[in-house]
Amino acid sequence: MSRRFSWFNATSLTLGFVFLYLPILILVAYSFNQSKLVTVWAGFSTKWYGELFQNQAFMDAAIVTLKVAVVSSTIATILGTMAAYVLVRLGRFKGRTLFSGMIYAPLVVPDVIVGLSLLLLFISLGMGRGVTTIVLAHATFSMCYVSVVVSSRLVSFDQSLEEAALDLGCTPWDAFRSVTLPIIAPAVISGWLLAFTLSLDDLVIASFVSGPSATTLPMKIFSQVRLGLSPEINALSTIMIAIVTVGVVSSSLLNKRATVRRLRQEQDALKQS
């Protein structure tokens, strides 16, 4: 296959990336603007970052957001890994197609619908809305992403490893804990990072299920912006972009490195045998 340089390819690539990243770049640039006016460049400064950390409302929201992200992504990772394990391992059981379809559904259902239905659920259960309900809501939808990541790893996992563990005296749980889990760990961690960033990122679902006691950063930013743009918001958004980028990049690097290493080991094995 020849992949030659052509002006058409170069132009489409450039346009695509500009379209994707220009708004973000502008936002990052203006977060370092000296001027209070968001649209007028008046020289470089980091003062808005300093002011941001003085703002108690923002700091409270940040703490809520982190708490929600850590707890919900941990729950999502446990549940998502379990779901992936069952769907990949149990082979054909009645309703398997239905289950695996249902696990992917929340990936395509609009956030508004997910948020609304969770809200209705919490109300009918009589649960007070706050951090707990946000955590539950985030765990629910990010669990699907975790199970997608983990099941793609489990599909290529040699089942005879688990059988060997059972054969050597493990109970099924011990076999999972001491053989399966260490081997699929990179995929599980990368699922956790993905769930973490999804939770940091979410505005719509959190807005539906949170109450007056809990405001996440995206919610805070959104409500501030309606009162007018401020360079502080730009600074805050820039920090969030940085965190999310680190999360997503390390998640995919982790997965890719584990895959590459596995392939290399398999090749070594072939060469030597």
Partner: peptide, 30 residues
Amino acid sequence: VPPNKRPVNMMFQSYALFPHLTLADNIAFG
């Protein structure tokens, strides 16, 4: 009797060595 309780051990066609453990730990596993 479940597999982990049988006085029977199996050597798998794919060998099924645990890739995350050393050879000594593989042997010590059981």
